[in-house]
Each structure stands twice: as C-alpha cells, then as structure tokens.
C-alpha cells in the first residue's frame, strides 16, 4: 500500500510541476463557464417570456434547464480534457525508461496502475470541485433543488473515473503521449456514440448496444436518480479497464 501512495504522490507532484494541469484547468473552467453562462442566459430569456404566459411558467425548471445541460456539457468537455491528463502516465515512463525502476522495485503492478489512476483522479476531482462554483452561484440567487445536483455530480465523478481508466489503459499501450491521447479519445468517443446505432437496429440488439455506451447510464444520474445498474456499469467497467491496463504493463515481463 505504501508503494501505491508513493506512486500517486509522485504523479500528483509531476502534474503540477509542468504547466499541463494548469492549462487544462484554465481551459476547462473557461469553456464550462461559458456554456453555463449560455444556459443561464437562455433560462433568463425564457422566464421573461414566461411572465406573459402563465402556462409556460409552470414548465420553468432551473434544474432541468440549467443544471442538467451543465452536467451534459461535462460529457463532451471531459472527453477532450481527460486524455490530456492521462496520456503521460505510462507513455512517459516507457519513454524515459523509468518503468524499469518501477518494475524492479518490490511493488506490484497493480499498485503502480492504481497509484497513477488515483493521482489523475485527484486532479480530476479538483477540476470538478472548482466547477461546482457555477451551481453554487445559481443556488444563492434562486430556488434550486439540491438533490439532482448531487446525484448529477456523482454521475460526473463516475463518468470521469471511466474516462480516466480508459486514458490510463491507452497510455500503457505506447510510449508516445500523442498516440495515447488519440487512442483514449477515440475509445471514449466510440463508447459515447455506440448507442447512436440503436435506432436503426432491431429491439434486443438495440438494447444491448445502448447499454454498452455510457450515455444512458449517465442520464439517470442527471435526473436525480441513483440507479444501481448504472452504478454497477461504471464501477465494473472502471475495474475491468484498469485490470486490462495492469495486464498490458505486466506483459513486458512475458513478451
């Protein structure tokens, strides 16, 4: 366990020793802030109109119109951001040959993979915590339902976990950071668009395909549901992908 923490701590340090983390934070907050602002403006316009039509006012729901889109924005923004956070993790170790130090030390490969995942997860959590300022501000000036925000953020955290796991996995495949980023971006995009085919496919197939993608499961959380199948989907997929990553790292031993 000590090894795991040491790996995680070192990895965290190196995130903030380079400009990568700062740039990613800035860009992410800038973009998500802009999108959030947009949703607010739209809501504002809508409520002005609603003052003239009482039936419209009943449909006005700030959770649905501002917070839910905010959560959905994460799906796309993180798709771009997380590969940048994870691409370095193993690719750089391979390139600098520091992987030799890790693999000849008395720690297990599982600890190495988990330690790195954990470090990236902490950085990601920092990002998410900073992004909660937007709902915070809204809650201060309006009557907002806190429940769906919390479940929504739980969903975002699970989604981020899945993205990170895929990113860690992609980084174990190569010693080139760009390749790692492109591969993780591609895999994540694939998981995202997989359900698109479900409209054109026959019933049972469509169901399978749409439940392999993460969009459907994520949706539940943004609506304020903590759904056991969705929870299981994210957690088991994260564990499985990290296991694959561990196998790949270990494969230098038998290749």
């Amino acid at each position: 366990m000590k090894g795991l923490w040491a790996i995680a701590r070192r990895e965290l340090q190196s995130y903030f020793a380079s400009p990568v983390a700062y740039v990613v934070f800035t860009i992410f907050l800038l973009l998500s802030g802009y999108l959030f602002f947009n949703a607010l403006l739209y809501f504002n316009l809508f409520s002005l109109q609603a003052s003239q039509y009482p039936w419209m006012a009943q449909q006005l729901n700030i959770n649905q119109m501002v917070i839910q889109p905010h959560m959905h924005n994460f799906v796309v923004l993180l798709l771009f951001v997380i590969p940048l956070l994870t691409m370095r993790l193993f690719a750089e170790e391979k390139k600098q040959m520091t992987i030799e130090l890790l693999l000849t030390s008395p720690i297990s490969v599982g600890q190495i993979v988990l330690g790195k995942f954990l470090a990236a997860f902490v950085v990601f959590l920092g990002l998410i915590v900073l992004s909660t300022t937007f709902p915070w501000i809204v809650s201060a000036i309006s009557d907002i339902d806190i429940g769906p925000i919390l479940t929504g953020y739980l969903g975002v955290i699970l989604l981020g976990g899945l993205y990170l796991a895929v990113g860690v996995f992609a980084s174990t495949l190569t010693q080139n950071q760009i390749v790692a980023a492109v591969v993780s971006f591609g895999l994540l995009l694939l998981l995202y668009i997989l359900p698109f085919a479900s409209n054109a496919l026959p019933g049972p197939m469509a169901k399978v395909i749409s439940s392999v993608g993460f969009a459907e499961h994520f949706e539940d959380f943004t609506k304020g549901l903590i759904d056991i199948p969705a929870l299981t989907y994210f957690l088991s997929l994260i564990v499985f992908i990290l296991f694959l990553a561990k196998q790949i790292v270990e494969s230098v031993r038998w290749r």
Binding site: K2, A6, R9, R10, Q13, S14, Q96, M97, T98, L102
Partner: peptide, 29 residues
C-alpha cells in the same frame, strides 16, 4: 535485495534529487 542501475538511469527530470531518492526509498519498502 537488489539495487539495479539500468543502462539509462531511470530519473524523473521534474523532481529534485532529494525528492527523487525519497520516492525510490519509499517504493523500495
């Protein structure tokens, strides 16, 4: 029980010498 210096010293350029050796000491148990 082994100390190993590979052909390319496995160093992290962004760390200080002390920080690096501290890290190695920890993962060596």
């Amino acid at each position: 029980r082994i100390g190993y210096l590979p052909e390319h010293p496995p160093l992290y350029p962004e760390m200080t010498v002390r920080g690096y050796l501290f890290f190695v000491a920890t993962i060596k148990g």
